[in-house]
Design a protein around this nucleic acid. Structure first.
Lengths: 202, 202, 202, 202
DNA sequence: CATGAATGAGAATTCATTCAT
DNA sequence: CATGAATGAATTCTCATTCAT
């Protein structure tokens, strides 16, 4: 009905979501007002509540849309018959590309959802955990066929891997790591190489 | 006065700080009221403002106290003449022990400060960055003497390492990773082994 | 359906009014939204405003329609040459039958108009007062010919009579009084008997 | 603590309640804002919420305070050994005196609680019903000893009696009935005489 | 006539902070 | 130091009404 796909020019719901991404990224979920979103979207205050039940629901929607894509991608990657290293590279690549494509959205998801242990992180825990488990599954099957060491639990390996990826994004978000075009590709290689090969020379 | 250790019985300031840790951990910085802290501390509302200028200052204090200890520890470790692997183990060990000793405090620091890109994370960025840089320094000097590979930048390696550690803590905070006594020690080994040796068999 | 009788199928205005009765009765005038009325009527939001200038006007219309009928009936009764007792019985009967026929509508009129001293009750005061005065007129003329005692003012007697009737309706509305088919007829007798004969034995 | 009774001059809670009575009476519960109450009371907006959880709770408090007194009084009257006629006179007298003493409060109770079938009337139904039942009990015991007719059910008689009383108050509230000092006393007599003796001459 | 998206003025409630005692 | 009443700005959410199609 509203999310059809043809007349983007007037899909106010989408306009509001996009505006929310900007505003959440700029001021944080708690730091902004619904009025800021409406202003950014160029719509009347009330229209936000015409499309969304609450401020929370906007963030929920944003998170679910994006995280859903990621889960699909990880599941897809997991299903392919490729070396574990390539699978992990694909996952890291997808996350980093997501950030490259829409840094504001990924910032919001990481900062306001994924790590918000007392609010959104808690309420979306199942979805978040699903990602970890899919990554863990990649590790587990690679351990089966000897591609990866078996002495480290898949759950733990998944967390180390995902933590490294998210921390790199955090570095970009905080302007701590350099963020030029080549850095994105380098990051993908570094992550996989660090996690798979280790920092010590072989 | 605060960290002395002698007149605990009446150090209301300390009592308030400890209460704040509990309350922040339970409800989040944004999710709690100053009144909750006062209640938890068993003191009058106004007393909180006798000792602290604002709600923010309480969190600032908590963060600075603990983060300062960590910086000292990492610096100390960095100064010693030990293999890089042992230095990283010491750093991971300190952070994990900090969590083991006071999970609420570490939860607050990670959730409400370290990842709060639009509020406390931003205002304490320098202190946070300092930690990354100290870890990066450990890596850099290890690369000098060939202990660690040189093709991965120290800044990046530091982020991967720290990200893995923090993600493990996040796993505990969210009840995603098992949290028994032995898991703490295992985590230390896993992190160092993953980051130094890599997940692929040698 | 309600008053006309011919083109029921498409009288959206009537459909909206009937829906409003249900909704007002269920949730109260203040407790419902215009959207609820549209939903209940199965018409589009905007159509309500095509037929009515405002939410208030809907209630005004409902009240005026019904109250007008009652005024006509009381006037008609008053005009007949019958014993006062029978006239009062006719009035009580009409009101009770109105309730029996459409309890929702009478509930709305009593709860949201007749007693709403600061809103609709005030704006419709003249119409409401008219009913009291017509009843008072019945009493007054009965006092003239000795049918009723003259030491009680007609205005007062009218209020006592009408109050008793309305309170019985209130009892039904609140599920305080039993509301079976026979209770309606019994109520008519009880009211007239109580007000005319008194509770003390003769 | 707050309702002690000595330092009335500064019992802000009482000041707020009294202000609320005025404001509710003047503009109706729905027609006024919490700010109006605060203004009328001469206190800051927030103080209202220091003493009351919500706007609703203010009305609840007002109703319960007053209605409780009435229930006590009716129960007390019921317990005495006096003719039913005197008991009913005492009840009507108490209600009318309550109105005479604080017409605003009684207006609020009748208009915004007692008849509000979809909000406060519903939530306080038990308390309201209790009053009807106590009056019904007076009637019932009088029927036992032959003081009152037995062919009219006590519940019904109670409603007729209470309805007559409340309607007289409504008449005053709407400026329909004359409201001079002597009218209050006259009303008491009229009500009892109408209900006990009936309007027809004996 | 009919639709339902768009508007924006409220209004209740929250809560950090101040201050008199 | 200690108390908790008092303050009032800020913000979310509601909903009657308008209007373009």
């Amino acid at each position: 009905m509203a999310t059809s796909g043809q007349e983007q020019a007037t899909d106010k719901r989408r306009v509001i979501l996009d505006a929310a991404v900007k505003v959440f990224a700029r001021e944080g979920f708690h730091g902004c007002r619904v009025a800021d979103i409406a202003d950014e979207a160029g719509v009347a205050y009330g229209l936000v509540y015409h499309y969304f039940r609450s401020k929370d629901e906007i963030l929920d929607t944003l998170f679910l849309e994006r995280w859903g894509l990621m889960l699909e991608e990880i599941a897809r990657v997991d299903g392919e018959s490729a070396p574990a290293r390539e699978k992990l590279a694909a996952v890291a690549g997808f996350i980093i590309d997501s950030y490259r494509h829409d840094p504001d959205l990924m910032k919001v998801i990481i900062v306001d959802v994924t790590r918000a242990a007392n609010s959104f992180g808690r309420s979306h825990l199942e979805k978040i955990r699903e990602a970890y488990e899919l990554i863990g599954a990649i590790v587990a099957s690679a351990q089966q066929n000897g591609e990866l060491r078996s002495d480290i639990t898949p759950a733990f390996a998944a967390m180390a891997f995902y933590g490294a990826v998210e921390q790199v994004l955090t570095g970009w978000i905080f302007d701590i790591l350099p963020e030029a075009a080549e850095d994105y590709d380098q990051a993908k290689e570094f992550i996989v190489s660090t996690i798979c090969d280790g920092l010590e020379p072989r």
